[in-house]
Amino acid sequence: MTEHPLDLDEVQAFVRIAELGSFTRAAEAMQTTQAAISLKLRRLENRLGCRLIERTPRHVQLSERGRVFLDPARQLLAAHDHALAAFAGVRQRLIIGISDHVAGPELPALIARMNDHDPHLVVEIRIGSSGDLLQSYDRREIEAVIVRLHAGRSDGDLVTEEKFGWFASPNWQPRAGEPLPVATMAESCGVRAMAAQHLDAAGVSWTEIFVGGGVAAVVAAVTAGLGVAALAPRMLPSGAVDVGARLGLPELPRLPVLLHTRVREGRARAALDALVDAYRSAVQA
């Protein structure tokens, strides 16, 4: 028994010669030359230490050892093809974290865009705060995150910058002499920190009227008329109005949205680029 692994090209050459009964036809089937086919067979015979094909001027035929080896050779090639087919059928998974302030009403369309780009890619979307998602990213639990600029970090690629404003329901009115009621997210939220910083810097007295576990909850509080919230316009339901100028509230800056990813090439990167392009178009529309 040979101690050297069999070369699949050499095994395939042997099987083609045996099945077609000709070096020339075997070469045509494998899209190579007769000389190359002969070389492959000779190398295989050297590996096995025996002659597999008996060559005559008129035709070729299997030797006794060749007849013994033919079925195992076919099984080896079939197993190889089966392994490749099974691997090709495995659906690659891409885990993406998207900040709650970034994922908006366009999310279904963005997911559809990724699926249209590569239907065989399994995309797992995780929604959370920028800070929590970045921690998961740093622990290598997520391959890519799209988040707001996070304090203390200088990595990430700029996707876009998004406008923010102070929004309330159309019929909401502040109460004279009382602090501004603000609906916001938990203290770890970067948008909350930004809004509080600007209110404090402007000397605006404010109080926390509602704390939501996500942007959808904050939007619901605004719709219910509880108070005002710092939000991106695209997050708002129909009818909400910007009350910043009317109430003399400080103007809010445009906030950067960044992509952090270790995915650099291949199908996953192409799908991720499609998602980023679609998101950028939605924000800038």
Score class of each variant (00 low, 15 high):
residue 70 L to I: 10
residue 70 L to M: 10
residue 70 L to W: 11
residue 72 P to F: 10
residue 72 P to K: 10
residue 73 A to F: 06
residue 74 R to Q: 14
residue 75 Q to W: 09
residue 76 L to D: 05
residue 76 L to T: 10
residue 76 L to A: 11
residue 76 L to N: 05
residue 78 A to K: 10
residue 80 H to R: 07
residue 80 H to T: 05
residue 81 D to V: 06
residue 82 H to K: 14
residue 82 H to M: 15
residue 82 H to S: 15
residue 84 L to Y: 09
residue 85 A to C: 07
residue 85 A to S: 15
residue 85 A to Q: 12
residue 86 A to D: 10
residue 90 V to G: 06
residue 92 Q to W: 05
residue 93 R to F: 08
residue 93 R to T: 15
residue 93 R to I: 12
residue 93 R to E: 13
residue 94 L to I: 04
residue 94 L to D: 00
residue 95 I to E: 07
residue 95 I to P: 03
residue 96 I to H: 02
residue 96 I to S: 01
residue 98 I to K: 01
residue 98 I to V: 13
residue 100 D to M: 02
residue 100 D to N: 08
residue 100 D to G: 11
residue 100 D to H: 03
residue 101 H to T: 13
residue 101 H to V: 11
residue 102 V to L: 06
residue 103 A to T: 03
residue 103 A to V: 04
residue 103 A to P: 00
residue 106 E to I: 00
residue 106 E to W: 02
residue 107 L to W: 01
residue 108 P to T: 02
residue 109 A to I: 01
residue 110 L to D: 00
residue 110 L to M: 08
residue 110 L to W: 03
residue 111 I to G: 01
residue 112 A to L: 15
residue 112 A to Y: 01
residue 113 R to F: 02
residue 114 M to K: 04
residue 114 M to N: 04
residue 114 M to S: 03
residue 114 M to H: 06
residue 115 N to S: 12
residue 116 D to P: 00
residue 117 H to S: 08
residue 118 D to S: 11
residue 120 H to T: 13
residue 120 H to L: 12
residue 121 L to S: 03
residue 121 L to A: 07
residue 121 L to F: 10
residue 122 V to C: 07
residue 123 V to A: 02
residue 123 V to L: 09
residue 123 V to Q: 05
residue 123 V to P: 00
residue 125 I to Q: 01
residue 125 I to P: 00
residue 125 I to V: 09
residue 126 R to L: 14
residue 126 R to M: 11
residue 126 R to S: 09
residue 127 I to P: 00
residue 127 I to C: 03
residue 130 S to I: 06
residue 131 G to V: 12
residue 131 G to E: 13
residue 132 D to C: 08
residue 134 L to D: 02
residue 134 L to P: 02
residue 134 L to Q: 08
residue 136 S to I: 01
residue 136 S to H: 11
residue 136 S to A: 15
residue 137 Y to V: 06
residue 138 D to C: 10
residue 139 R to D: 13
residue 139 R to I: 06
residue 140 R to G: 02
residue 140 R to Q: 15
residue 141 E to P: 00
residue 141 E to T: 07
residue 142 I to L: 11
residue 143 E to Y: 07
residue 144 A to F: 04
residue 146 I to M: 15
residue 148 R to C: 07
residue 148 R to N: 11
residue 149 L to R: 13
residue 149 L to P: 05
residue 149 L to N: 13
residue 149 L to Y: 10
residue 149 L to H: 14
residue 149 L to E: 14
residue 150 H to E: 12
residue 151 A to N: 09
residue 151 A to T: 14
residue 152 G to F: 04
residue 153 R to M: 06
residue 154 S to P: 00
residue 155 D to G: 10
residue 155 D to S: 12
residue 155 D to A: 12
residue 156 G to F: 04
residue 157 D to H: 12
residue 157 D to Y: 08
residue 157 D to L: 14
residue 159 V to A: 05
residue 160 T to W: 02
residue 161 E to S: 14
residue 161 E to Y: 09
residue 161 E to F: 07
residue 161 E to Q: 14
residue 162 E to H: 04
residue 163 K to R: 14
residue 164 F to A: 05
residue 165 G to L: 04
residue 165 G to E: 01
residue 166 W to G: 02
residue 167 F to D: 00
residue 168 A to T: 01
residue 168 A to C: 05
residue 168 A to H: 01
residue 168 A to K: 01
residue 169 S to Y: 04
residue 169 S to N: 05
residue 170 P to W: 07
residue 171 N to F: 13
residue 171 N to S: 15
residue 172 W to M: 07
residue 174 P to Q: 12
residue 174 P to A: 08
residue 175 R to V: 15
residue 176 A to W: 05
residue 177 G to C: 09
residue 178 E to P: 05
residue 178 E to S: 12
residue 178 E to Y: 11
